[in-house]
Structure formats: structure tokens, C-alpha cells
Design a protein around this nucleic acid. Sequence first.
DNA 1: GATCGTCAAGAGCAGTGCTCTCGTTTTTTT
DNA 2: AAAAAAACGAGAGCACTGCTCTTGACGATC
Lengths: 230, 230
Amino acid sequence: MTASRTARERVRAELTREITDIARRQLATDGAGGLSLRAVAREMGMVSSAIYRYFPSRDDLLTALIIDGYNALGESVERADAECRQDDYLRRWMTACHAVRDWALAHPHEYALLYGSPVPGYQAPQDTVPARIRDVTVLGRIVSDAWTAGAVQTLPGEAPRELAPEAEAIRGLMPGVPDEVLWRGLSSWTTLYGWVNFEVFGQFNNTIENRRAAFEHSMRLAASAIGLAQ
Amino acid sequence: MTASRTARERVRAELTREITDIARRQLATDGAGGLSLRAVAREMGMVSSAIYRYFPSRDDLLTALIIDGYNALGESVERADAECRQDDYLRRWMTACHAVRDWALAHPHEYALLYGSPVPGYQAPQDTVPARIRDVTVLGRIVSDAWTAGAVQTLPGEAPRELAPEAEAIRGLMPGVPDEVLWRGLSSWTTLYGWVNFEVFGQFNNTIENRRAAFEHSMRLAASAIGLAQ
DNA sequence: GATCGTCAAGAGCAGTGCTCTCGTTTTTTT
DNA sequence: AAAAAAACGAGAGCACTGCTCTTGACGATC
């Protein structure tokens, strides 16, 4: 049964992968708007209608690329964090931030697909969720680990009561953390992706030249906003 | 001369305006990808080629919409700030942040055009610059005013030396402000737009319900990160 | 009143996503 | 092993897109 299935299914899996590979290359050069099923088919030596045997629509192909992108970004951040001394929380935070930025700058169009404006008629089916939270999971765990280790300073101010129910939905990413730290973490997370968005989408062109240093400083500020100061 | 010019130019200006109005409506419903010159022409009762008398290409029409969007957002923030007591800097900051968020939520597709992923083959000609900085100019002036009024607390930490030359390009938005405050301001600005991006692009769906309150708290944190605490 | 520039219309080109049908090949069932 | 069923690639075709070019009419200018 498995042998017979592999006969046809193997070449199918191979072709499916080849399609996504070519599509990813087109995406990298022309952006999401330039992704053309016909062009992919042309490059494969197939006729355009044959692609539809593998992806029922262009949006489905895009969705596959999006999931791949989330996984690639998430894995990149996970690996960067794993190489850190786990009890140096500030270093872990900075490393994770740089991992996000580096990946985004290396794959701007893919990043735009993940964190830019939703491209066509709003896809994002539910099966992207597990891949989508890999990167933020790492960031949340760093804050969570730092807190449980007592490495987070208590800062003045506290979270408003009305936000208490909202915090529960986010606590899954930062288990064991009190509300105020949780919201500070969310805010710094927002700073990270806000910066990367600005940089990838060209908002800093002709303004900041040494962007890596400015990013470094900004992420250090974000860390100290959480209470993760050295 | 002025009379004769108005004769023909007036109907031209009127038609140009009608085109952008219809295009903006299409943009609001279908997003940037759904903007079609032919559909605009159809709705105007014209033939598609006639549109090209007014906009040489689809990208030029998009650019016009982008400039309009920057101006609408900028004007909205300017007006919100003007209605504040000018010496209540925290309130001005919060009001400006809410103005950005409110406008973005009311015009998500237009906002995506301004701060989302660049849509076609990278447009953004140079004539968008004056309109593009209207919103951030308001935010910068709030920080600048607060600083010159002595309403900004000095916080621990200082800006790295290597960033000193970079600061000059940004100081135009925050005149008279020392480097460290300037970078804190930039970081909080990043937090603001990072949040709005997340919210408009649906990253908070099924996670945060009371987003206004969470935003409010996050922006308060951003203000205190600058030193703009109450 | 003749001239010249502006304009809308139409046809047409190259490209797109997608659907349908038609033989062929492979897999599954009998 | 033969027959039925499913999967597949090729091709034609539909409706749509941005954009170009030509043609003829209208209005402003000298």
C-alpha cells in the first residue's frame, strides 16, 4: 500500500515542491504581485492548467508560501535563541530581535507577505496558525524565562483592570508572567515588528544610514521597557 | 487667459477629481489590488483609454491616492493635536496616537497603501515626501515641545556615540532635543505604527478583544519610555 | 474663419486567473 | 489478467487586466 502510494504520490510531492520553489523565486524577485501561475508553469515546461492539479488557485499557492515563510522565520529565530546562553536574557532578547530583522532584510518580499498588508481578498486560513506564532513564541518565552528567574525589574505603573481578561489570551505566550510585564512585553514586541516593517518597507531610506546600530539601540530600549535591563 | 483656461481646465480638474473619488471608493472596498482603471472608466461611463488622458498609468493614479492618503492622515492628526491644551504633553501624545489609530481603522486599505507593503513595482516618487511626514511631524513636535518646556524626565542610559551623525537627519522632526530623547521618541513612534499595523492587518484577531484599551495602555507605556510620564 | 491642440472612442496586443473537455497513463478493483 | 476508476497533461477558451495606437469630433486661439 505504501509502495503503491509512493509511486504516483512521490512524483506529485516532487512537482508540488518544485512549484513552490519556483514560486518562491518569483516572489523574491518580483514580489507578491508578480507571482504568476502561468509564469511558474512556463518555467516548469508545463501548461498553465496543469498547475491547478496541484494548487486549486493562486491564493492557495500563496498560502503555501506564507506557511513556509512563517516556518522559515520562526526556525531562524528559534535557532538563534538556542545558540545563546539561556540565562543571559538580555542577550537572548537582542539576539532574537536581530534574527527577526536579519531574516526580514534577507527575504523582504516574503516578510511582506507575512507582516505586510494582506495581499488579495484576505486569505489567511486557519491552518497557518501553528506556523505563525513560532517567532513570537520564542520572544514570549524569553520574557517568561527572565521573569521566572527573577531577572525582570519591577517598574512603576500597573496594568489597568479592564485589560485583565484580555491578558489571558496572550498569557499562553508568556506563562507565569504578571499582567503588567505581559503588556510591556507585548508593547516591546510591537516595537520590534514596527521597526522591521519601517526598515523593510523603506520608511528609513534617506534618513537613517546606520540602521543596524539604531535598531540595536531601539531594541535595547525596548528591553529596558520590559525591565530586562542589564 | 484665466477665463479661457478655466473653461477647459475646470472640467478637466473636475473629471480628475471624479476619477480619484471613484478610485478611492474602489480602493476602500476591494483594496489596492482590486483597483482597476477599466472599472473606474466603466463607472464614469467612459471608455478605458480616456482615463489615460488624466493619469498616464495605473501607478500614477495610485500615487495620487497615496498622496491624498498621507494628507488625510496628516490633517487628521494635526487637527486632533490642535484641539488639545498645548501644554498637556502627555494628553497631546495620547490624542495624536489615537488619531493615527482611528484614521487607520476607518480607512484600512488606504492605510495599507501608506504603511503596508509597497504594492506594485516600488513607486513612491519624490513628490510624496511633503505629505508623507505630516503625521510624524506632529508627533515630533509634541516631543520637542515637551522637552523645551522641561516636561521630559531624564531616564537612565544614553545614546551610543556612533549614532550621533544619524541623529541629525531626524532632528528636523524634533528640534532642540538631545540625542537620547530623540532615539526614545523614534522608538515610541515605531511602537505606535507597529501596533496600528498589527491591528489593521488583523494580527490581533482572536487574541485581543478590547483593542482600544490595550492600545491606550501600550501608548502610555510608549510615552513613559520617552520620559513623558504624567 | 482657418488652425491647432485636446479629447473620447474604438480596436487591438500581450498578459492574467480560471474552467472545461479530451485523450492518455497510472492506479485500483473485479 | 482484464476492466473500471481515478489522476494527469495538453489545449482551447472565457472574462478580465494595463496599455498603445489611430480616428474623428469638438473647442480654444490666432
